[in-house]
């Protein structure tokens, strides 16, 4: 099962500069664990020690914010697209 993950500029030091990486897992937590095996250090930038998504990190599955899909328990399917972005201001 493969999922495409878009990585923001600020976290590309963990992906060798790659903008898009592939990963697998049936939940977001499993995906982050899988990514960690190849991109060491990335997981700690996304997930706090308490096991929650970092406050200033937004993650989207097929453009929908995962915080409304169960957070790290959000389900993933083959071919899904995951986008990671830092939280920025609008207005």
């Amino acid at each position: 099962m493969a999922v495409q993950v878009r990585v923001p500029t600020i976290l590309r030091s963990y992906t060798g500069g790659a903008k898009v990486v592939e990963g697998g897992g049936d939940t977001l937590a499993a995906l982050f664990d899988d990514l960690e095996t190849r991109h060491s250090g990335l997981r700690a930038r996304l997930v706090t020690d308490a096991g929650d998504l970092h406050r200033f990190v937004n993650v989207y599955i097929n453009d929908e914010d995962v915080r409304f899909l169960g957070g790290l328990d959000a389900k993933l399917s083959d071919g899904d697209s995951v986008t990671i972005l830092p939280a920025v201001a609008g207005g």
Partner: peptide, 21 residues
């Protein structure tokens, strides 16, 4: 609906500079 901009706009120096109103 949240606008997703080009990369320049997300050009923070680190994640802790992020912002939630």
């Amino acid at each position: 609906a949240e606008p997703r901009y080009g990369e320049l706009v997300y050009g923070l120096r680190n994640i802790d500079e992020g912002f939630v109103p």
